[in-house]
Design a protein around this nucleic acid. Structure first.
Length: 329
DNA sequence: TTGTGTTTTATTGCCTCC
DNA sequence: GGAGGCAATAAAACACAA
């Protein structure tokens, strides 16, 4: 073992020889060089053998008997023979007493690193070898680190779960809205076709219409109510969405939500390249149906308090990010 | 009682710092 | 080069179900 002094034997070579009665051991801290003083050859009479880790002083410095301190003597009343036999046994690990551990725990809470002076002091206090104190602190730090890692993992796991739940709900909402929009668009197209057949002034000859402002009569009451319903429905979704984001979204989702809201950007949900209609179809819809002078107050209220003149349904032509709704951007 | 899994104590080897 | 820290590991002690 490079650079390290074996302070006492447990499973080491020296431990197999001639354990010395504890009474003869050097009391930790009694020497200015406790490490060196207890590192003796096997032939040394003061070699700290297998029992070297056993001390008979408690936290308060009182002398303790083996019986009160360690295993075999806790269960039964052993006579001198048993005691003798005990000392002849090959060395065994001895657990620290509850009191010792509590004392060390408190010390660890104060400072989890061990200054040499403190180590000696603790060793004196607990009647242990300084090396034992060092080892205990080392093992204790390792346990603490493991626990800390587990905690960190749990935090990350919870964070991931929350984010995933939010993401999944947003995906569902997106699909649902897309389906609705496709459905309504289809209906509008059908309606447009019908209008094109029945009204020669619309659809078939758009060029003739360029100078003519469309009137509210251009779209049937039915279409108006449908689109209006969609608008209101969207409003419901909007609130639903905020419910999703607000209800149980922890700090981790705040960023997502706020960034979406700040951008006023629904492209997160309605991506431009996901339109199911061709540009021509969209243009047709815009030109023929979606240019009414009537408005949808609810949408405008939500989206623009003062809608631009060139807006369709209250959406400005330039800005097609559609803070409120519309897939065709 | 015994087999098995977990916890605790201790060792070993390597690394860094002074 | 010595001291001390850490990761990996061994082994004893302990807990507990069957």
């Amino acid at each position: 073992m490079a650079g390290r002094t074996l302070l006492y034997g447990s499973t080491g070579v020296a431990s197999s020889v001639n354990p010395v009665p504890i009474q003869n051991q050097i009391v930790p801290g009694s020497s200015s060089e406790p490490h060196n003083s207890i590192f003796m050859s096997a032939s040394s009479s003061s070699f700290l053998g297998p029992r070297s880790m056993v001390s008979f002083e408690d936290v308060n410095g009182r002398k303790r008997t083996e019986k009160s301190f360690y295993g075999p003597f806790d269960q039964e009343d052993n006579g001198d023979e048993d005691l003798d036999e005990y000392f002849r046994q090959p060395e065994k690990k001895r657990r620290l007493t509850v009191e010792q551990v509590q004392f060390l725990e408190k010390s660890f809470e104060v400072e989890n690193k061990l200054e040499p002076e403190r180590k000696i002091e603790l060793a004196k206090e607990l009647g242990l070898q300084p090396r034992q104190i060092a080892i205990w602190f080392q093992n204790r730090r390792a346990r603490w680190k493991t626990k800390q890692l587990e905690k960190d993992y749990d935090v990350l796991q919870a964070s991931y779960n929350n984010l995933k739940a939010d993401y999944d709900s947003l995906l569902k909402e997106k699909d649902k809205l897309k389906a609705e929009i496709a459905q309504i668009t289809e209906k509008l197209l059908l309606k447009e076709k019908d209008n094109g057949n029945s009204k020669s002034s619309y659809g078939s000859d758009l060029s003739a219409e360029t100078t003519k402002e469309p009137s509210a009569d251009s779209v049937s009451e039915d279409e108006v109510s449908k689109i209006s319903a969609l608008a209101y429905k969207h409003e419901d979704h909007s609130s639903a969405k905020s419910d999703v984001l607000d209800s149980d979204s922890p700090r981790y989702t705040d960023g997502v939500q706020s960034s979406l809201l700040e951008r006023g950007d629904s492209s997160y949900i309605f991506e431009p390249d996901q339109s199911d209609l061709s540009q021509d179809e969209e243009d047709d819809i815009s030109k023929n149906l979606l240019r009414p002078s009537y408005v949808f107050p609810k949408i405008e209220d939500d989206c623009y308090s003062d809608p631009p003149s060139s807006s369709y349904f209250g959406f400005p032509v330039e800005d097609q990010s559609f803070g409120c709704f519309w897939p065709y951007n």
